[in-house]
Write a protein that binds this DNA or RNA. Structure first.
Length: 584
DNA sequence: GCCGTTTTCGGCCCGACTGTTTTCAGTCG
């Protein structure tokens, strides 16, 4: 039975391929399928069990989508989707991820100069062939070349953005847990460490009999092609070309296997060295005494860490960057946890042009999720179409007053997500800004400025007394758009000096501030962070955990995350910067 | 493709900006 998640993935793929077919990402047919996928994503009951009549009652789902859903449920494929896949192979689709290359240009490249993948595009760039094409010039060539380089696209050994991989991995793990005889199933590898991009997915299963697991896996709908099908290990590819390895181990060896396949390689090497120091050996089956051959630990990761004299190291920390020494010294950071979070400080509603849930729904959902405080941060006036005029800000204030009465236990701040201009300037004016309870300032344009200019504009925004936090610092979209180049140490210094926080944005395709940048601040305790969902829909509050994972990967301590603080403490801190400026 | 209805088509959110070209494609939220 196809899950909703699987159907969402299929419909999204269809929409993605339609962009090429229609020649525009904005084509109404593309948007219609995207909207249908949204509707399925928000559905609680299984769409696979619904009739056509029931499906078309969903907002955004019509006859064509409903029939495609039923076709997929009945046959495991959609004829029109298969035809599109044939016409536009993944290597061609990948080209549309490069900023500056839309569907029209990609098809132009294919038809005029026979560019079908990243490798051929690179060759064409080297030969300066793009500038000969209509609508493209030397600047476009330079921009595209730089984007390819910074996105790490190489053609063959490409890695997939975590947002594409995580739903598939969860689908596989959940399905395998249902197989009779399976004791445990987890994904391991860089995905478990919560890396931004994933090479391939490693799934580990504890079961006494591997056969049924292997059979169940190759029959999963997500599996498009089986590369190798052995007794305890199977390798398969999805339709998008993502490799998934499933290994079955004995339940008594699950911990050792999970540890081994979670890595990182550098982390494992350090652990093995510690084992050797004790006269032991550590491999994917067990931690064992070399002399006697007797097993020391194998069933759980924790037992192995304990035997090695270490505290348990959370998967997000296992990068070989000092976590083993810290674990030995008992000096691992007290990382932030999902349960620690009390407020959400970056939330949109339909008042913003791109919001998809009403203000009432967003506030109600925040309350139902047990949040103690939220900041409604609609887009500001400089963002064409999406932003609120001053009059609208005043109108929303009245709505918020009404909601405060309806939800007395929830502290609701009126905020704004301001746009940081190329020179660091912000929306509205000084006095108007000072009247907000909470301001997020974010870069939404001019992603290509040199590093010095990017750093300067961020520092200018930080210096403004009304700016409480810098939103999604780099502006990156993982696998799609490189972030701005910015001197992150200078940003940390300025943030610390002014009492301005840095947001850790929870969207899976942002995860911004990136973990490697966060790690640069791990020795300092003067920088404050907030973990925000940047929700545009009620369902996106649940993205919180992704931001928390990313914060943990960046060694961010709970005590430095302002939205773990109790309401009174948080409010006091949030007011301080404005108040200081007023007095000064 | 979906929706709504004054029901069978017209509207769907779109203005600013860049690069390139002189009318348009792509990008941003």
């Amino acid at each position: 039975m196809a899950t909703n998640r699987e159907l969402v993935r299929i419909i999204r793929e269809y929409a993605e391929l339609l962009k090429l077919e229609e020649g525009s990402p904005q084509a109404f047919r593309v948007r219609a399928y995207d909207k249908a996928a949204d509707a399925l994503g928000e559905l609680v009951e299984p769409a696979a069990e619904m009739s056509i009549a029931e499906l078309v009652k969903l907002d955004g789902v019509g006859k064509a989508t409903a029939e495609k859903i039923q076709e997929y449920v009945a046959t495991g494929s959609i004829a029109k989707l298969d035809a599109l896949r044939e016409k536009y192979p993944p290597s061609l689709v990948e080209l549309t991820r490069i900023p500056g290359l839309g569907p029209k240009t990609v098809l132009l490249l294919r038809d005029k100069i026979n560019v079908n993948n990243v490798a051929e595009l690179k060759a064409a760039l080297a030969k300066q062939q793009l500038r000969e094409l209509p609508g493209l010039g030397a600047k476009s060539e330079a921009k595209i070349a730089k984007a390819i380089d910074r996105l790490g696209l190489h053609g063959k050994d490409r890695r997939s953005p975590i947002i594409n991989v995580l739903p598939i991995a969860r689908e596989v793990v959940e399905a395998l847990r249902e197989v009779p005889g399976v004791k445990q199933a987890e994904y391991a590898g860089s995905l478990r460490r919560f890396s931004d991009t994933i090479g391939d997915v490693d799934v580990l299963v504890a079961a006494s009999k591997p056969g049924p697991v292997m059979d169940a896996f190759v029959n999963l709908p997500v599996v498009a092609r089986v590369e190798a099908h052995g007794e305890t290990k199977t390798t398969a590819l999805t339709a998008e070309g993502l490799q998934i390895d499933v290994r079955v181990v004995a339940p008594g060896e699950f911990g050792a296997a999970l540890l081994y396949f979670t890595g990182s390689k550098a982390h494992n090497i350090e652990l093995r060295q510690l084992a050797i120091d004790q006269g032991w050996t550590l491999n994917e089956y067990e931690l064992a005494d070399v002399a006697t051959g007797k097993s020391v630990a194998a069933r759980t990761e924790n037992a192995i860490y304990k035997a090695l004299g270490l505290r348990f190291v959370e998967p997000e920390l296992r990068e070989g960057v000092g976590e083993v020494a810290a674990a030995a010294a008992g000096k691992l950071p007290r990382l932030v946890d999902v349960e620690d979070i009390r407020g959400d400080l970056h939330v949109h509603s339909t008042w913003s042009g791109d919001g998809r849930s009403s203000l009432d729904d967003m506030v109600r959902t925040a309350s139902e999720r047990g949040l103690e405080y939220i900041a409604m941060t609609e887009h500001a006036e400089n963002l064409a179409i999406n932003g609120l005029s001053r009059e609208q800000v005043t109108e929303e204030a009245a709505e918020l007053a009404r909601l405060r009465e309806a939800y007395p236990k929830l502290t609701i701040l009126q905020g704004s997500e301001l746009n940081i201009g190329p020179d660091g300037s912000l929306d509205y004016d000084h006095d108007f800004l000072m009247d907000f309870d909470w301001c997020v300032a974010s870069v939404h344009s001019h992603f290509d400025l040199p590093q010095a200019d990017q750093t300067a504009r961020i520092l200018t925004a930080i210096a403004h007394p009304a700016v409480n936090v810098i939103g999604h610092l780099t502006g990156r979209r993982i696998g799609k758009r490189p972030g701005i180049e910015v001197d992150v140490d200078a940003v940390f210094d300025a943030a610390a000096a002014t009492g301005t926080a840095l947001e850790i944005n929870c969207h899976l395709d942002r995860l911004d501030v990136p973990a490697d940048m966060l790690r640069r601040a791990r020795e300092r305790s003067d920088v404050t962070f907030v973990i925000s969902t940047d929700s545009h829909h009620v369902n996106e509050f649940a993205n919180l955990r992704w931001g928390v994972h990313n914060a943990r990967r960046g060694w961010v301590q709970k005590k430095l995350v302002a939205n773990t603080w109790p309401t009174h403490r948080f409010l006091e801190w949030a007011r301080r910067k404005r108040d200081t400026a007023r007095v000064g």
